[in-house]
Structures are given as structure tokens and as C-alpha cells.
Computed example of a mutant assay.
Amino acid sequence: MAPENDSSVTEFILLGLTQQPELQLPLFFIFLAIYVVTVVGDIGLILLTGLNSHLHTPMYYFLFNLSFIDLCYSSVFAPKMLMNYVFRKNTISFVGCMTQLFFFLYFFTFFGISECYVLTSMAYDRYVAICSPLLYNAAMSPKVCSSLMLISYLMAFLDAMTLIGGMLRLTFCDANTINHYLCDTYPLLQLSCTSTYILELEIIIVSGINIILPSLTIFVSYGLILSNILHISSTEGRSKAFSTCSSHIIAVSLFFGSSAFVYLKPSSMPMNKGKFSSVFYTNVVPMMNPLIYNLRNKDVKLALRKVLRMVKF
């Protein structure tokens, strides 16, 4: 997995989130709890969606894919991070770092970009449901939903491979201290002894396309939805519409806000800010998604009670 180059560095030192020994154990339990909640929440929603026929709708089809993406997304790096806390190991070989970078870029970028487009598809679903309810079945047919997901995964694959090709061409000479808890893109760019201008430009273009365009599409959709909601005469109807959309707006704001801060910043910005932001969108956001969508959703609660009754009897 290591690139064929003239790098003289044989191993890297990962500084992690903090170098204070007394914080290692509390951080381990915090991230373990976050990861457990993420896994349980996402697997729970996947099983509920699969077992309950009344959840076989476009909205839950996208939620099913979002849960699958979050499960894979968080599993790319969380287990390795937890192992580092347990074994207190802060070094990684060059080959190991490049391997981690490959899997991080491929799977993390793939699932991260996929999530951008799944959230956009969900915004489109809510727009059609509220603004054009009579056309909903035609506009959100199984074929349309499958096509939207296929486009999401295809875009993610192409962009991930573009970044991988650029990163594996880097060479490293003397500096080997990575101010991060994993072999991420920007920390390695700062250590490279070759020009990174083209690669930084690629990262900004890919990030801009996959963060700015989907987020603009989402907020335009919700602007139209809000305009439509304000024309609903029924107070109960307005309340239901706001409740349906508010969960998605919260999830979108958390994910796109933290991602933009990390990947649309100049590489010269101090890494301490970037790595704490990356913790937020790589750990906290995947945990929040199942909580946001499940705890506020009557259909999910009803499905959960139904499954529990089935297990009981």
C-alpha cells in the first residue's frame, strides 16, 4: 500500500488529542461510549427499517442508507483510536501510516461524501412531500430513490480515488511528528518535503463541490419548504411540518458545518483547531444522527414497540 517514492522517514509519531497522561483514560471511556451509542443506534435503525413494512418509504430508505454510512464512517478510525489509548502507542510505521491513510481516504472520504448526497436526497424528499404531496409517489418512486443513492455512491468513489492518487505521491524527508490522532490529509501535507500545491487545490475543489453545492441545495430546498409551511392554515399542520424538517436541519448543520471548518481551511491553520473539529464530525455527528432521527420520530418509536412485543411473545 505504500507509494513508490524516495521517502526517508520510516515511522511517524502521532501526538494524539492531548499529551497529558491523566486525560488518556477519561478520553478512552468517552470515545468508547460515543462509539457504542453510534453502533447500537445505527444497527437498531437498520434492523427496525428492515423488519417493519410501514417503514419501507423513501424517507426511511434514505435513513437506512444514512445509518449504514454512519456505521461504516465511524468504524474506519474509532477502533484504532481506542486501541491507541489502551496500548498507549503513539508511533506508526511509514507503511502503516500510508495504509491507514489509504483506508481513511477511501472509506472515510467515500462514506463522508456519500453522506453529503444522502442528506441532500433527504432534503429533496422533504421538499416534494411538503410542497408537492400529490406528486410524491411519482417523484420519489423506488427507481428515483435508487438512482439518487447510486449517484451518491458513484460521486463518492470518484472523489475518493482522486484524493488517494494525489496523497500517495507525497514524499517525506526528516519531519515525522504528526499533530493528530491518525494519519489524516492536512497533517501529512505539512510534513511533506515535496510541493503540495496541486494536491491542496484538489482537496479544496473536491471539498468545495461536495460540501458547498449540497449544502446550498439543501438550504434552498428548506427555504422553499419554509415558505410553503407559512402558508399552511392549520396550526397542527405547521407544527407537524416543522417537526419533520427540524431533525434534518440539525443533522445537516452539524455535519456540513464541522466538515467545512476542517476541509475548507488553509493548510497553514494550526492543526489543534482542525483535529478537535475532526473529532466532532467523525465521532459526535455519527452518534447524533440516530438520536436526532429516532428520538423525535413517532414512526420509529411505534416500530420499536412492535419489535419489542414480538421479542417478548
Rank of each mutant, 00 (worst) to 15 (best):
F276D: 15
T282I: 08
N283G: 06
M288I: 00
V279T: 06
D299C: 11
R296Q: 10
N283L: 05
L291N: 04
Y293I: 03
K301S: 13
F276P: 12
L295T: 05
L291Y: 03
L302Q: 12
V279Q: 06
L295K: 08
N294Y: 14
M271P: 02
N289R: 09
N272L: 12
Y281H: 14
Y293S: 07
L302P: 00
N283Y: 06
V285A: 01
L302S: 12
F276H: 15
K298F: 01
S278L: 13
A303C: 10
M271R: 11
V300G: 02
V300F: 09
T282W: 03
K298D: 05
N297V: 06
V285Y: 00
K301T: 04
R296F: 05
N272H: 13
N289I: 03
M288T: 02
N272T: 13
V279K: 00
L291S: 05
K275E: 10
Y293G: 07
K275R: 14
Y281N: 11
R296M: 08
N289Y: 07
V284G: 06
N283D: 04
P290T: 08
L291P: 02
V285K: 01
A303Q: 10
S277D: 10
V284T: 09
R296E: 00
P290G: 12
A303F: 10
P270M: 07
K273Q: 07
S277L: 08
S277M: 12
K275G: 06
N289V: 01
V284N: 05
N289C: 05
I292C: 02
L302M: 10
P286W: 00
R296A: 11
K298V: 09
L295E: 08
F276C: 14
G274L: 15
A303M: 09
I292W: 01
N272R: 11
R296D: 00
V285Q: 02
L295V: 04
R296S: 12
F280R: 08
V279N: 02
F280Y: 14
N272G: 10
Y293W: 14
P270N: 07
Y293V: 03
A303I: 05
V300W: 02
K275L: 13
V285R: 01
N289M: 05
N289H: 11
N297A: 07
P290N: 12
N294T: 13
V279I: 12
